[in-house]
Design a protein around this nucleic acid. Structure first.
Lengths: 246, 246
DNA sequence: ATTTGTGAAGGGTTTCACAGCG
DNA sequence: CGCTGTGAAACCCTTCACAAAT
C-alpha cells in the first residue's frame, strides 16, 4: 500500500480524456490550423490522420472522446474541430508563463515568438545572475530570482518553465510550488520531486539522444544474415508524442 | 492485413527491451552516475527508484530485461549497473551528431557542453544563411546547408538534429535520410514523414505547454463541492519519460 | 532478514472490423 | 456508397505479491 490515492479523478463531465489522447490533440490542432489557413473546409479521418502521422482508427477514437463532431459520409468540419479541440485542451483560457534561467536555452525560449500558439504568454523572465537583471530579451526585462514570488503573485502565473542549470532546478521548483504554481515545464536534467497535484513535464535532450542511440545500435546489430536492409514502404511515420512509437 | 510486419524483431540476445523501459534507462543511468561520483557502492531498488521518481517494482522489472545484475538481500552494484545500462543503450559506441539550423535554439544546443553524456559529439553545425557561415559557435564552425551531404559522409554522422524553422524541416529531413542518416531529433513544430527504418524523436515545446494547460484547466474545474485541494503527501513525483504519467 | 526477480492480475492503449448514419 | 463512431480483440505496460536467493 504505497498511498490510498485519494478518490481518483471524479471530474464528472462526459468520459475523461485518456492521457495518450491528450498528448496527440495538440498535433491534430496544429495540422487543422494549417488546413484552416489554407482554406480547407473539411477533412476525413484518413486525411487528417495521414498529416498527423497516426492511423485513422486511432484518430477517430481520439476525437470520439471529445464528442461526436464528425459527419458520416463527409468528414470533420475543420473550423469546428479546431474550436472543439482548443476547448478540450483548455486553450480558450489564458496562461501567463514565467521562464526561470536566461542562459542559452532560456534565451531561445524567450525569443520563441508567441512562445506557442495563442493561450500562452511569457510575462516574466528571471535569472539568478545580478549582472543580467535589467537586460531585455525577447521584449521582456530580466528580473532577479529574488523577485520570483512577487512576480508569480502579481501576474497570477500558472506555468513555470525551468531553464536553469541542474543544480538550481529543484530549489526553483520548490519555490514555484510554494507560491502556488501547479504546472512546471522542466528543461533541467534532473528528476524533480513535487507534491501531489503538481504536474511536471520534462524536456530532456540527452534522454532523447540516448533513446536514438539505442535504436541505432539495434539496427546495426540486425545486419547479419540475409542483408535485408530497408525492405519496403515510404509511408509516413513519426515518433509518437507519447514517446513510444513503432 | 495491413502489412505482414516483416519478421518482428528477432534481434536475438535475451528478450527484447520494451520501449517504455528504454525511455527510462537514461534516467536511471543519470542517477547512478551521480551516485558513483558520490562514492556510493550499492543501491537497493527502492533507493534508486525513489531518486528516479518511479516505483521500485517498475524499476526491478525494467532492470530484469537487461539481465540479473542485482544481489538478493543486498541490491545493485552501482558501477556495474552503470556499465550494463550504458551497454544496453549502445552508449559504448560513438555517435557523431550534426545540428542543422543555428538560430536561437541551435545556438543553445551547440553550446550545451558535451551535448549530453559521453557517446555523443557534435561534429558539424549547418545553417542556410550564408552570412553565418564561417562563424564559430560552441567551438564549431558553421557550414553552409549545401555542404550537408558532404559533412555527413565525411564524419560518418549517424544522428541529425533539426533546429530549423518549421518550413525547412521536412526538406532538411529528406536530405538527411537521402544520405543515410537513420536517426533524427526534431525540434521543429512539424510532423516529419520518413521512410520505414528511420527513427524520429521530437521535442515540441508548444505541445508540452498545451498538455500542461489541459491539466491546469482540469484542476480548476475540480474546485467545486468539498473544496478538497491538496489532501496529502509530499512524496516524489515526476512526469514520466513516456510522457503519460499520473 | 532483506531484497531481488518474476508469474499473474489489472489497466490502459491500439487495432480491428463493422454497424449505423448521412 | 462513404465515412464516422465504437464494441471487441489484441497488445503493451504497470502493479501486486511472493518464491527464491543471499
Amino acid at each position: 500500500m504505497p498511498v490510498p490515492r485519494a478518490a481518483a479523478s471524479r471530474t464528472g463531465r462526459r468520459g475523461v480524456i485518456p492521457e495518450a489522447t491528450v498528448a496527440r490533440l495538440p498535433v491534430y490542432l496544429r495540422v487543422l490550423t494549417a488546413l484552416a489557413e489554407g482554406g480547407v473546409g473539411t477533412v476525413s479521418s484518413e486525411g487528417l490522420a495521414g498529416m498527423a502521422g497516426v492511423g485513422s482508427a486511432k484518430l477517430r477514437k481520439d476525437l470520439s472522446h471529445l464528442g461526436s463532431y464528425g459527419t458520416r459520409g463527409v468528414g470533420y468540419d475543420v473550423d469546428y474541430l479546431v474550436y472543439q479541440i482548443s476547448r478540450a485542451l483548455g486553450l480558450t483560457q489564458h496562461y501567463p508563463v514565467v521562464i526561470i534561467g536566461v542562459g542559452n536555452l532560456g534565451h531561445a525560449l524567450a525569443n520563441y515568438a508567441g512562445f506557442a500558439t495563442r493561450g500562452f504568454q511569457t510575462v516574466a523572465l528571471v535569472d539568478a545572475d545580478p549582472r543580467r537583471v535589467g537586460e531585455s530579451v525577447g521584449g521582456h526585462e530580466i528580473h532577479h530570482l529574488d523577485d520570483l514570488e512577487m512576480l508569480v503573485k502579481e501576474h497570477e502565473i500558472s506555468i513555470g518553465v525551468i531553464a536553469t542549470p541542474a543544480t538550481a532546478a529543484q530549489d526553483v521548483c520548490d519555490r514555484l510550488v510554494a507560491c502556488g504554481v501547479t504546472s512546471v515545464l522542466n528543461f533541467a536534467p534532473v528528476v524533480l520531486a513535487v507534491p501531489d497535484g503538481v504536474e511536471v513535464r520534462k524536456v530532456d535532450l540527452s534522454i532523447e539522444l540516448q533513446i536514438l542511440a539505442f535504436h541505432e545500435q539495434r539496427k546495426a546489430a540486425g545486419v547479419t544474415a540475409s542483408g535485408t536492409a530497408l525492405p519496403d514502404g515510404v509511408r509516413a511515420a513519426v515518433a509518437d508524442p507519447t514517446g513510444v512509437a513503432r
